[in-house]
Simulated assay, not measured.
Amino acid sequence: MKNMIVIAIALLTLLLTLLLTAACSASPNPEPSAGSASAGLPASLPKPDAAEQEALLASLAAIDPRLPSDTAVDKARRLCGRLLGQSPEDQLIAAAKAEFTGGDVPAVSDEDAQRVLSAIGANGFCR
């Protein structure tokens, strides 16, 4: 009887170990955190065509010529995802400021962040 209990405990331990190992090694499906740039983004972000991209870069340069043109399209696409996800305005402004602050731009004002969002929304690719 004692042998059967020991065997049962050993089998349960082995089974639990296998289940935990399988659960830990399964590829995770990460959920974006609330503070991350990708929070609330659709799986497939709209992409501007060549004319829309040129117009977008011109609009952004008119807001602040220091805004980085080499990464601006990707930043605009991420912000577009937030616009389409109907994030609250304060979160949109914070996201625009976070996306475009850095490098040659020490800080993006709330007004400029709103102008960036308006430029993205009016561009035509963000639908």
Rank of each mutant, 00 (worst) to 15 (best):
L56I: 03
D74G: 12
G124A: 09
A98V: 02
P88M: 06
E99V: 02
L12T: 09
A62G: 09
D49V: 00
A51L: 10
P46Q: 00
A50R: 12
P46I: 00
Q91A: 04
G121M: 04
I63N: 01
L41P: 11
G35I: 15
K47V: 02
P28S: 13
Q91M: 01
A37Y: 13
K97F: 05
L12A: 11
I5Q: 05
S59Q: 13
G102P: 14
L92H: 01
D110Q: 15
L14S: 00
M1F: 06
V105P: 09
V108Q: 03
R115Y: 05
L41N: 11
T71Y: 09
A10K: 00
A119L: 10
T101Q: 00
I5M: 05
Q86D: 12
L12H: 05
S59R: 12
A58Y: 08
C24G: 11
A43I: 00
L11N: 11
A37Q: 13
G124C: 10
A23T: 13
P32E: 14
A8L: 00
A98Y: 01
Q86G: 08
T21V: 15
P30L: 11
T17D: 10
L18H: 13
S69Q: 00
L67Y: 01
D70L: 05
K2Y: 04
R82H: 14
E31A: 06
L18D: 13
P88Y: 02
R82D: 13
S27K: 15
L20V: 07
T101S: 06
P42K: 04
S87R: 08
C24V: 11
R66G: 13
A55E: 04
K47P: 00
F100N: 04
F125C: 07
S25W: 07
V116E: 14
P48M: 01
P65F: 01
A94D: 12
V105W: 09
G102Y: 14
T71W: 07
T13S: 11
P28N: 12
I9S: 11
M4A: 09
G85H: 02
G103V: 05
A22E: 13
M4D: 08
E89R: 14
I93H: 02
M4V: 07
I120P: 03
A23H: 12
S36Y: 09
P32W: 12
G121E: 08
N29Y: 15
V116G: 14
I93R: 07
L57T: 09
A34I: 08
M4H: 07
T13C: 10
S87T: 04
P68F: 02
A122P: 00
E54Y: 04
N3A: 08
L60M: 08
V73I: 10
A37P: 13
V73E: 09
T21C: 13
R78F: 09
L19V: 11
A113H: 01
L11P: 10
P65L: 02
A72F: 06
F125L: 07
D70G: 01
T13P: 03
A62W: 08
A39V: 03
G124E: 10
L79P: 06
L20Y: 08
V116P: 10
E99T: 03
G121F: 04
A72Y: 05
L117I: 11
L83I: 15
